[in-house]
Design a protein around this nucleic acid. Structure first.
Length: 991
RNA sequence: GGGGCCUUAGCUCAAUUGGCAGAGCACCGCCUUUGCAAGGCGGGGGUUAGGAGUUCGAUUCUCCUAGGCUCCA
């Protein structure tokens, strides 16, 4: 549809062309879209990137066109139905622009609310940095939560945003229904104590019913339904006022139409807007009857009341009206786009469908062959194609926002999503690396809305392709193991692969169960899936039980929230001072908020102002002392469990501390200085690495400890030793230039203009802190630093190593620690030079020479020892006794003979007997005060029923063993050696 | 955070109930030779991740530490 719509739009003249293109022609190329938060920026963001499609290479475009044409010819019924559907939903006036691109839906949404006084706020990054309980932003309002909860004052009273979101709880439903996608975008308008129900309803009604020519969505008023909360008569009145007839306004209960965050705080009724997609999608009668036909497109939440505690979703007390009533709305962008494009589900909109087409092209599958009305009844291949499209897009956006595949947390979610996509490709028969084919398609679909995806694609694809390679090697390993298991099962006549085996493959080797099923089926085996599920459930139970067990030991977040609510953000004054007067705002014990703590107790102290730096940005926390009233606490750790809340984890070392008392906080200055030096050094190492390795060498993590730093960064391979030397040298030159280190707060735009480096995964507010070292390095940073680069004294890089694919780590020392390290090494070289009696420069050569001489000498010695031991072999064989037809040699090896030589002697003597003459050779040896025994016998002796193992065990009463030909043992006192030989001889004799 | 598995030569991997640590590739030398991963002979290269224990004896069994893979939270 994208293409069809595009063509049509061009033919239709200016209808689809954004007005801003004419208004601000010059801005397009200058501003970087995607990072705008001001109204001014909107124009550039939305209008600035049209023309690039003309410059696209022809190959892929043609291919895609061809694919589309085939596709459309194949399923004319759906095409016709789809178009018809669009026409019936939209007002006649909108027909010419029937298929509206997703980016255009987004643009219109923002423009409508901007025109109505809303500030356009850019999407927050997907990783939800501020909330430890939330992996990803999963709703449009997440970045506004502190405003809704009254923790922060919003800088605007009206806002509008299109927020990137990820939801994974029902990941298994992806592709099976039309509604579940792991990545989606949420349009939302927000009011913070400004307008309420009436205007919210009017604004949303205006946007969806406004004709397309006028910038709206042009939806036929007849097709619109609304739901309201049971007793929300107000809202019914407002809906009637805009023109919606009473028969299309439905009252619904608490489960559907009442909102709360699950914790005490704001709550209130909702009003949802539905669009009737027509009889082809289901029965008549409104959303109560059929939610497939009547599709929810927009939820308006009216934050009207305050609620109390309660675990249940519907069971909690309403405490009263909120003083400031807020509006929070959400319109699924993809859902809206699917309606505007007349497609059945969100996988078929312009931002997703090209991925399905590409996957079809690669796998030779055809999408939606047996066309169905709802996604739920789809062919398994269709489900897989949708999974691929959704997951590839999600992966692209996640990596784009700085998430990288790993074994835990966010990275693990990403990894699972990526592997599911790759797996789905395999199940469709495509076994080559799939992401290099698919990811660029996702980039082309998404970059119109998110240009940074295109500019950053090198980094994104590097991670993605590396992850696919890693997965391919686990698949290879798993396939081998599975093949063996299948063969074993078949050999033993089984028809079923055990649940144990399937689980082991999944659990230990990461081999997906669906591939196990597939491969087993090919081999005619079934799999015990019940057993597999049981084992999975057990594992889940274990992990959950563990998580529960340790949660009780923690002060949970509510105590922190209480402390934060009690006085707002804690002021940090440590940039400017190292000690100050303060007051204890709250004390937190193991069970929550407490009022006092006595000597010896561990307690978490919240001050209203503090010079203590909380661990963050790789910088370790300050330690120190807080004196309060008659008490004194030693600070052991400082953390920031919630944004703005600085918590000192401390032990009361003297007296007692009480909440509310005034006190004096003092940090360990020496430690702070050493940490600050390390932090400044980290910036210099970062900048210098980039100077030598290029701009892609970005920071991936760091540790700033007293006198020591660790710096992780992205780079494809090992850093050559010569580069490390150069980096080290340049950093030290910067130290000698004694540059001033300056920190200042500025707008994000200004920081970007200055070229300050910013990190992925960090969420920055409108104002950011920039730290610069002269003109040499400039970085966004909240840490503490030395005043001048000269204060660092010396930076010494110790090592460079790999810590993961594409990530390297350097360790370095700073200041006196670096000096002490060098001094120590100097002493070491002095000592070596002295021991070898050579000039220092020659120590290396001399060591090399010595090692090689020593090795030669050892080899020579070994050879001579062997000769000594083996020399007598012939004579020993000559002197063999005959014990009832068995040749027997019993001898003691020279004192101190090595085990290897003794064994060789035994074998050597044995070899001197003809093959048909039974022979037993026993050699005893003494070493380290212990006697040992080795017995070697030949095949002829074995066929007489003799066994070397038995002989050794017999002589040593079990303390030895080996096999029938050769056995050894020992451990008895050295003077027992003759007895051992005697025992063997006796055993042979009396056999 | 909890569970399973892995770590052996520069690389990829072998090594039977615990009993002489190997192969292929790479490297070095010599020879042969000029055709797509050339061949032949010879050679160097190992604290079997580190530490402790059990044992006559540990790459192998047990425990601890470090790193990696993987599943579940």
């Amino acid at each position: 549809m994208a293409r069809g719509g595009h063509r049509r739009r061009r033919r239709g003249g200016a209808v689809g062309d954004p007005p801003g293109a004419q208004v601000h022609p010059g801005r397009a190329g200058r501003d970087r879209p995607g990072i705008h938060w001001s109204r001014r920026g909107l124009g550039a963001k939305l209008y600035g990137r049209r023309p690039r499609r003309h410059g696209r290479p022809r190959g892929p475009a043609l291919r895609r066109l061809r694919g589309r044409r085939v596709d459309r010819a194949r399923r004319p019924a759906l095409g016709a139905r789809g178009r018809q559907q669009v026409l019936s939903v939209q007002a006649a006036a909108g027909r010419r622009a029937a298929a509206m691109r997703t980016a255009e839906v987004k643009r219109r949404f923002l423009a409508h609310f901007e025109a109505n006084g809303h500030t356009v706020v850019p999407s927050a990054p997907l990783p939800a940095i501020d909330d430890p309980n939330l992996l990803f932003v999963n709703a449009g309002m997440v970045q506004f939560v502190p405003y809704f909860l009254g923790q922060q004052t919003p800088p605007f009273r009206r806002a509008v945003s299109v927020q990137k979101c990820i939801r994974t709880p029902d990941i298994d439903e992806v592709g099976k229904t039309s509604r579940h996608g792991t990545f989606f975008q949420m349009n939302g308008n927000f009011s913070f104590g400004d307008y309420f129900k009436e205007e919210a309803i009017r604004l949303s009604w205006d946007l969806i019913t406004k004709p397309i020519e006028a910038g709206g969505f042009g939806i036929d008023q007849e097709k619109i339904w609304a739901t309201v909360y049971l007793d929300d008569d107000e809202s019914i009145g407002f809906w009637r006022a805009v023109g919606l007839p009473a028969e299309r306004i439905v009252r619904r209960g608490k489960a559907d139409n009442f909102w709360s965050m699950g914790i005490p705080g704001p709550c209130g009724p909702c009003s949802e807007i539905y669009v009737d997609r027509g009889p082809a999608y289901g029965r008549e009668g409104g959303p109560e009857v059929d939610e497939d036909r009547y599709m929810e497109i927009w939820n308006n939440v009216f934050m009207q009341y305050e609620r109390g505690p309660g675990t249940d979703k519907e069971n909690y007390p309403i405490l009263g009206e909120l003083p400031a009533q807020n509006i929070d709305t959400g319109m699924g962008l993809e859902r809206m786009a699917s309606i505007m494009q007349g497609v059945d589900n969100l996988y078929e909109i312009d931002e997703v469908r090209p991925l399905i087409d590409k996957a079809c092209e690669l796998t030779g599958k055809r999408y939606n062959v047996s066309h169905t009305t709802t996604a739920a009844e789809s062919h398994p291949d269709d489900v897989r194609l949708r999974v691929i499209a959704d997951h590839v897009r999600t992966s692209l956006m996640l990596i784009g926002d700085g998430v990288t595949p790993s074994n835990e947390g966010r990275g693990y979610v990403l990894r699972r999503i990526m592997r599911r996509a790759i797996r789905a490709m395999r199940l469709l028969g495509y076994e080559d690396p799939a992401l290099p084919e698919l990811l660029p398609v996702a980039r082309d679909s998404m970059s119109p809305s998110y240009p940074e995806i295109a500019t950053d694609f090198g980094r994104i694809s590097q991670y993605a392709y590396a992850e696919e390679e890693a997965f391919r090697s686990t698949l290879r390993a798993g396939t081998t193991i599975l093949d063996v298991a299948v063969a074993d099962t078949k050999k033993s006549g089984g028809k079923t692969l055990t649940g144990d085996k399937a689980f082991q493959l999944h659990d230990t080797y990461g081999f997906p169960i669906d591939l196990t099923l597939e491969i087993a089926a090919e081999q005619g085996l079934s799999v015990d899936t019940d057993g597999f599920k049981r084992l999975m459930a057990e594992q889940r139970k274990r992990a959950k039980a563990d998580a529960q067990a340790r949660k009780t030991g923690h002060a949970d977040l509510s105590a922190y929230r209480g402390a934060l609510d009690a006085g707002g953000a804690v002021e940090f004054t440590g940039y400017a001072e190292v000690s100050r007067e303060s007051k204890v705002r709250a004390l937190i014990g193991s069970g929550g908020l407490i009022t006092s703590a006595g000597e010896g107790e561990l307690v978490e102290v919240v001050l209203d102002v503090t010079p203590f730096y909380a661990e963050g940005g790789g910088q370790l926390p300050d330690l120190g002392l807080i004196t309060v009233g008659g008490g004194k606490v030693e600070v052991l750790d400082v953390q920031q469990p919630l944004p703005g809340l600085i918590v000192h984890k401390a032990r009361v070392v003297e007296g007692e501390v009480r909440s509310g008392e005034a006190g004096y906080a003092q940090i360990d200055v020496e430690r702070r200085r050493a940490i600050s030096r390390a932090h400044t050094a980290t910036h210099l190492v970062h900048q210098t690495m980039r100077n030598f390795l290029g701009g892609s060498a970005t920071q991936a993590g760091s540790l700033n400890a007293p006198g020591r730093l660790r710096f992780d960064f992205n780079t494809p391979g090992a850093v050559p030793a010569s580069v490390l030397t150069d980096v080290e040298q340049q950093v030290n030159e910067v130290l000698m230039s004694d540059l001033e280190v300056r920190a200042f707060v500025t707008s994000q735009a200004e920081a970007k203009r200055l070229g300050a480096m910013a990190l992925f995964g960090e969420k920055y507010g409108e104002y950011v802190r920039v730290v610069e070292v002269g003109e040499y390095a400039r970085e966004l940073c909240g840490g503490t630093h030395a005043a001048r680069s000269g204060q660092l004294g010396l930076v010494k890089i110790l090592s460079e190593a790999s810590i993961g694919s594409g990530v390297r780590r350097v360790d370095a020392l700073v200041g006196m620690d670096a000096f002490r390290h060098l001094a120590k090494e100097h002493l070491l070289v002095s000592r070596l030079a002295e021991l070898y009696r050579v000039p220092r420069e020659e120590v290396g050569d001399r060591v090399e020479q010595t090692v090689s001489q020593l090795r030669d000498a050892e080899r020579e010695l070994e050879k001579m020892r062997a000769q000594l031991v083996l020399g007598g072999a012939a004579a020993l064989a000559e002197g063999a006794l005959d014990l009832g037809g068995v040749a027997y040699v019993g001898t003691e090896a020279p004192e101190g003979a090595a085990v290897n030589d003794v064994r060789t002697l035994a074998q050597e003597v044995r070899g001197r007997f003809p093959a048909d003459r039974p022979a037993v050779v026993a050699v005893a040896a003494r070493a380290n005060g212990k006697a040992s025994l080795i017995v070697a016998i030949n095949d002829a002796a074995k066929s007489r029923g003799l066994s070397a193992q038995d002989l050794v065990k017999g002589a040593l009463s079990g303390r030895g063993g080996g096999n029938a030909d050769l056995a050894q043992g020992g451990g008895v006192p050295a003077d027992q050696a003759p007895h051992l030989l005697g025992a063997v001889q006796a055993a042979v004799q009396t056999r």
